[in-house]
Amino acid sequence: MTEGLESDVESTDDIAERRNELATRVRTHAGEIARELAVLQGGDYGQEEFETDGGSWTLKYEAGDVQYLRFDPKSGSETYVVSSQQPPEPEALETAMADYGSFVAAYNEYVRSFDGLLEDVPDDFPEVESTAELVAERDRIVERIREVGNAMASELYRYEGEYGTYATTVAGTRWELKWDGDAVSYLRVGGSDGTYLLSQYGPPSAPEVRRLADDVGSFVEAFNEHVDDLESDLSRVSFDESI
């Protein structure tokens, strides 16, 4: 009854070591293919499938390195030759490696299929027109509007306090100027989703400046009428020195 217990147990260390060495070499080699695919496709991640006489190989890559290499034979179960999990079973790895050379050949054929693809693509392009003159004129107009806005801000600061907003309607559109001290903070046309003719950020586009610049004069006229009304109100205030 104890005869079997006295028999030596065969070690699988050599098989496991050989399997691990082979899996490491495949990972390194497949990683080269993954990097080449990433360069070819122009992205950090993706996957490609390659057909061989023995089955189908799918290589998925991310950040220029192989994520997994899966072999799906025409007969039998699929095998993850390379993965983030443990290496495949030795027998499954042996089956896959018998077709691995065909996988590499399929990859090489895939790359060669792009030979000459870009030969007839023109690399002589039309001259790009400069926007420098248009931008300079846009900036000149915006700077002039800013000068006017600062002048208005200075008056509002003197009349109404450190900061605030002045709003009116010009040609059916809301114009709002915000001041902070004696300087304009912004000039917005069209409500909260409107165009900022003046702001702490960049200037508006040239078409927007062209569309709105003609109404700046009307906005200033409305402001002047506002100031006149303020002066008129103040002129009606009396003070009896005898009080």
Rank of each mutant, 00 (worst) to 15 (best):
Y100N: 08
Y100G: 06
S102M: 04
F103C: 01
A106V: 04
N108F: 05
Y110S: 03
Y110C: 07
V111N: 07
V111I: 14
S113F: 02
S113R: 10
S113E: 02
D115A: 10
L117W: 08
L117H: 08
L118V: 03
E119D: 13
E119V: 02
V121Q: 15
P122Q: 04
P122N: 05
E127D: 09
S130E: 01
A132M: 04
E133G: 07
A136Y: 03
E137P: 08
D139K: 07
D139N: 13
V142M: 10
E143H: 13
I145W: 14
I145V: 15
R146K: 15
R146A: 14
E147T: 15
V148C: 09
V148W: 04
G149T: 08
N150I: 06
A151Q: 13
A153F: 02
A153D: 00
A153R: 07
E155P: 00
E155F: 02
Y157G: 02
Y159V: 06
G161L: 05
G164N: 05
T165Y: 10
Y166S: 14
T168N: 08
T169Q: 14
V170T: 12
R174N: 11
W175E: 06
L177K: 11
K178F: 04
K178V: 06
W179Q: 01
D180S: 13
D180G: 12
G181E: 03
G181H: 02
G181A: 01
D182F: 02
V184I: 14
S185E: 15
Y186G: 08
L187R: 03
V189G: 03
V189D: 01
G190C: 03
G191Y: 09
S192E: 14
S192G: 13
D193C: 07
D193V: 08
G194M: 14
G194S: 12
G194E: 06
Y196F: 12
L197I: 14
L197H: 11
L197D: 00
L198R: 14
S199F: 08
Q200Y: 07
Q200C: 01
Y201W: 12
P203Y: 01
P203E: 00
P204N: 12
A206S: 09
L212N: 13
